[in-house]
Simulated assay, not measured.
Amino acid sequence: MAVRFIKIAVVYFVIGVLLGLYMSMAHDYALKGVHVHINLLGWASFALAGIIYHLFPSSSNNMYAKLHFWSGNIGLPVMMIALTVLILNGAEVATVFTAIGGVLVVFSVIMFAINVFMNVRSTN
């Protein structure tokens, strides 16, 4: 799971940087919340999780790690696409999908926290 997290983090990093470039060039910062969430949750959080999973292999190959990965990688895109639609088009139906994606992301973080507390141990 460590390598998967690091690779998907890089994908989010590229998306976040490209979105930032677009906003800068267009002088339109309406999507700054999307930009921030992609960079923080997608790039930074997943990269750090990948490093933790690499350093503590016992935490990497279990149900919690898999739930962390899949719920985060389903929830974040759903939440960000819905938020983009909501911001750009004002489509209120997008609010439901923003909430669904958000709940999946929160669930993902909780799975990560449980995994860390149960499986990350000192080697001393």
Rank of each mutant, 00 (worst) to 15 (best):
A49W: 04
L76F: 09
I110P: 00
V85K: 05
D28I: 10
Y64M: 13
V10G: 07
M111A: 15
H54E: 12
L31C: 10
F69L: 05
A82Y: 07
H27N: 15
Y22P: 08
L88I: 13
H54V: 05
M111Q: 12
G42V: 09
I52F: 09
L55C: 11
G75D: 06
L76R: 03
V109N: 02
L83G: 04
S108V: 07
H54K: 14
I8T: 14
G75L: 06
L55D: 09
L19P: 01
A47Y: 12
K66Y: 14
W43C: 11
K7H: 07
A82E: 04
A99E: 07
I52S: 09
I38G: 08
L19Y: 04
V116E: 01
V78H: 01
Y64T: 01
V105K: 00
V120F: 02
I15R: 04
Y22D: 13
V11Q: 00
L21S: 10
S24T: 13
A113Y: 07
Y12I: 12
A91I: 11
A49D: 03
M80N: 04
V78S: 00
V3N: 14
N61Y: 14
I81F: 10
P77C: 06
L76M: 09
T123W: 02
H27T: 13
I38D: 03
L67V: 11
P77D: 06
N39E: 10
A113W: 07
M111W: 08
Y53R: 04
M111P: 01
A44D: 05
A2N: 15
A94M: 08
N73W: 03
I38R: 01
T123S: 08
L55H: 07
A47C: 13
H35A: 10
F69E: 01
L76D: 04
A30K: 12
N124P: 02
I110G: 00
F107C: 03
A9P: 03
F112M: 12
V103W: 01
I8H: 00
L41W: 00
V105W: 00
V11L: 10
D28A: 12
N39L: 13
S58N: 14
Y64K: 09
L41C: 04
V103E: 01
V34P: 04
